[in-house]
Amino acid sequence: MSGVPGAIAFCWARAQPDKIDEADLANDPIHQFQISKILPLEAMGLDISFTNSSLFMVATVGVSAAFLIMTTSGRGLIPSRLQSISEMCYEFVADLLRSSAGSEGMKFFPLVFSLFVFILMANLFGMFPYFFTVTSHIIVTAALALLVIGLVLVYGFWKNGLGFLKLFVPSGVPAVLIPLIVAIEVMSFISRPISLSVRLFANVLAGHITLKVFAGFIPMLSKIGFVGVVGAILPLGFTVALTALEFLVAFLQAYVFAILTCMYLNDAIHPSH
């Protein structure tokens, strides 16, 4: 596993476009979201290059899968420390899904678990300086959100038939109000994939930009001499605090994504309110 960061650093160095100099890199808070091609590829007129984003997707999946598979290979009755981390992840997501979607929802457990671990690891990878954050791109979070909503729709109609539409008609509502309520329910359902994807994307993006801006103040202030160096202590403190906050956000957003997935799946399994 120790080879992975080295390989990432190597590819990262290769991936840097040489037109941006060091000063730009230090001051530009948007640069960290730049996608650069490592291996340019094209198929059917579409760009499918292996980019820094692809590299970190591979790293996220590789490290997570290797960890989960290797730590449990001992199948210890009394778990080792690393094995109990894997078990804790399993039980955490399993409890989450069981408590919101019931035992019937457990058939979606591999998906919810994969989503949670993938988003969590992608967010945590993003916390390393110079690393690319996969979840900072709306297309990635939107794809994951559409996967969830698509599954909810397909499974909901497949299992309940047209009974799935009861999801939009809460029971016990006066007949006069039904058109209004149905309109609101449909709107809220349509906004689900948007809120699900934008929440994760915006949190990660905003967090990284804020962190970069505050960290950027430190070298900027240090350049103006002694007063600047003393003044740079404040943004340094902010940067440290924000880093801690970002670790929390990294976990929290993965958790929120997973729990919302569970609740939406619950709607597909039990559509009547």
């Binding site: 692809s54 996220t60 999946v61 996969v134 794809a143």
Partner: peptide
């Protein structure tokens, strides 16, 4: 960049 990201997300 969307097509490349989508493809690699799907693969990984």
């Amino acid at each position: 960049t969307f097509s490349s990201q989508l493809l690699w997300l799907a693969i990984t």
